[in-house]
Design a binder for these strands. Structure first.
Lengths: 163, 163
DNA sequence: ACCGCATGGTTGAACATTCAATGAAGGGCC
DNA sequence: GGCCCTTCATTGAATGTTCAACCATGCGGT
């Protein structure tokens, strides 16, 4: 018998500090990178990320679902983002031949141009405000940690069907 | 004389991987923690964070501007967030006595109760999906990195007045 | 062939965040 | 005291994201 319903395992002071640093650092960083992209290239970060995936895809085209998975955004969100990009002429959509349900998005020449123009400033920002501040060891640690986070969250699906 | 306008210093493959892991990991993590908080306690993460700061403040009250700085959200955003919390009865607002412009937000008893009920599950999530996956060394590295990011971004103000 | 169910994708409304404009009050300077 | 400039905070509109509902197609079983 136990008076409490399983006592909470709180974070210790260092963990607490690190967690909060991560929270506010991430807020500020995303904010800043997004702002730069927007002001200098008229692109939001989610849009930029979509363009990157498309540019790297074989034949520069990708199924919507795959695109969504690759950036870990909801399908709905990707639909909206791609719709904006399409309206701006940076992306095109076409029905998928092999699968009647499918849609393939592809990046246009104009999209490639926009991406190539935006990439250098974006990378410079990522360096200036993150990578170059970190030291290789620490940055590698960040990589390990968030790879683990990703793996864990991918299979611990909140829409758990079977248990 | 230089043919190009300063060639870009791209990320190497490891940096690239780490950067992307951080991006998608953060997306998934925030998504998940927010969802848990919402479904189980009817609170969004930004609301939860506000409650935390208020609960820790001397006399459980804080000026709006300070609150905004402490979570690194825009003042406008905090105004809206606090308005929601106030409507839910978790926070109260009162004019500041010493400064006619100021407003002090304070957490109500109901707010404290909501926070105390939400905190254990939230912390459990933070552990399960981040802290416990990381290893102390690596997680400390995350802390260092994002402290540096924060420091850098705080004084490299995008609204740079003087240079 | 048909049924039932899962998947791919879109839609529009609800909700949250950003942005620009606004008003009220403090502080320095003459 | 009056002026100018800054800071504090809010407002409402524009924009982006989430959420639930929806339709169409594919796939498996019978």
């Amino acid at each position: 018998m136990n008076g409490e319903t399983t006592d909470t395992d709180w974070l210790d002071q260092n963990q607490q500090r690190s967690w909060r640093a991560y929270l506010v650092g991430t807020t500020l960083l995303m904010d800043r990178l997004d702002r730069e992209l927007r002001e200098q290239h008229n692109l939001a970060m989610p849009e930029y990320e979509i363009l990157v995936r498309l540019s790297e895809a074989p034949d520069r085209r990708m199924r919507m679902a795959l695109l969504a998975d690759s950036v870990s955004h909801s399908r709905s969100r990707v639909t909206h983002t791609v719709a904006r990009l399409e309206k701006a002429g940076l992306v095109r959509r076409a029905a998928c031949e092999s699968d009647g349900r499918g849609v393939e998005a592809s990046i246009t020449d104009k999209g490639m141009a926009a991406l190539e123009s935006a990439a250098p400033t974006h990378v410079a920002g990522v360096r200036q405000f993150l990578v170059d501040l970190a030291g290789d060891e620490d940055f590698a640690a960040v990589g390990r940690v968030f790879n683990a986070v990703t793996d864990k969250l991918i299979d611990t699906n909140p829409a758990a069907d079977i248990r």
